[in-house]
Computed example of a mutant assay.
Amino acid sequence: MKKNLLNYKGLYGDNNQRDFGDFVNHELLATRSKLYNWEINVHLHTDLFQIFIISSGEGVLIQDNKRINLKAPCILLIPTNTFHGFEFQSDVIGEVFTISEQFIETIFKNTPLILLELNKAKQYSFNLDNQDLNDFIYLKNKITKTISENSSYKQISLQSLFQLFFIGLHHLNNTFEDQKELSNNRTLGYFHAFQKLIKKTLPESKLIKEYANELRITPVHLNRICQTLVQKTALQVVHEYCITEAKKYLLYSSYSISEISYLLNFKDPAYFSRLFKKQTGLSPNIFRSNNSQKDSN
């Protein structure tokens, strides 16, 4: 039987198709983890963003075939469409917020820089006496209380509280260069929209000029935006997404190289293999073999 990617439309273990809208969910870390003996298989959520707040204990995040230690207190962000799994100690204490992508895009539609930051998984570690940690715990408690309320202003309150939460993390994030800070919202908005278009389509089925047309800008303008923000051409951004998706299939499915190339809408598996090797330095077969050996060690 062919092994496919473990992709949950809802929360872990829930694969019911639904329209999440402005979905926000809160639960204790133990609620779901305990059901699976504290081991969460590697999976992704297509439309859901997650925040893990671990206040006590330890665990391991499994991502991109790497094992990343999690030690409390810490906050972990898992973006949509990101493969991840966990191994928690049974005494771990924490909470999980699960938010729809639409909810995040609504609250940050005028600040696309933060949306750009939220594209990658990130762990924030704290000392117990850190004032920033106290601020996040205060906001976490306010969010939890608001979720349980039945107020006419519940949705507005949640939007404001999550804005403060993510803006607080943004101030801790020193990975973005000054030029990104100086980029105007219009430029960042175009880039975010470009990323969404890539995600929605099978990348190899579209030309850069077609993406540009949908954004109502010229291909030259789109390339300039990509160069400014990520120092890549628009085509390189598309190829980077293709390779990231290909790695998921190579690591977490049993599809053949040819099948993966067709799933990503490459018309020629040989071209897919050449592009993959150019981007990673390894052929798809060797990449899969090397990472399979890591799993067995």
Score class of each variant (00 low, 15 high):
S183H: 01
K109Y: 11
S258M: 03
K267P: 06
I40Q: 08
D47G: 08
H239C: 06
R288H: 08
L235C: 03
I167P: 02
T233C: 01
L169P: 10
Y8K: 10
F97P: 03
T106Y: 11
R216N: 15
Y8L: 09
S205T: 12
E149M: 09
Q231M: 10
K277Y: 02
N7V: 15
N184Y: 10
L44A: 12
N127S: 14
E149Y: 09
C226D: 05
Y252L: 00
Y138M: 11
L197D: 02
K142G: 08
L77V: 12
D268C: 15
Q155F: 08
N297C: 01
D19E: 15
N174T: 08
Y249D: 01
I143P: 00
E181D: 15
G85C: 01
N290Y: 12
L116I: 06
V92H: 01
H239F: 09
G94R: 02
Y36W: 13
L207E: 07
V24P: 02
Y262S: 13
N7F: 05
A193H: 10
E240V: 01
K267V: 12
D22P: 01
Y124W: 11
N41D: 15
A246P: 05
S90L: 04
F166H: 06
K66V: 00
D178E: 14
P112H: 00
E58K: 00
N223A: 08
H221Q: 10
P79N: 04
T218N: 00
K209R: 03
L113Q: 04
N110R: 10
K120F: 06
Q123K: 14
D47Y: 07
L29F: 00
T46C: 00
A246C: 05
L197M: 14
Q227D: 09
E95A: 07
Q102N: 12
L115V: 02
L6P: 04
R186I: 13
N7H: 09
G13Q: 08
L28F: 13
S125A: 11
D295F: 02
L161K: 06
N291W: 12
L113N: 07
S151N: 14
Y12P: 10
N15Q: 09
K140Y: 09
F97T: 00
S125M: 07
K154L: 05
F97V: 10
S151Q: 11
L251T: 06
D22N: 14
I156K: 13
K154D: 04
L282N: 05
Q279A: 12
C74N: 12
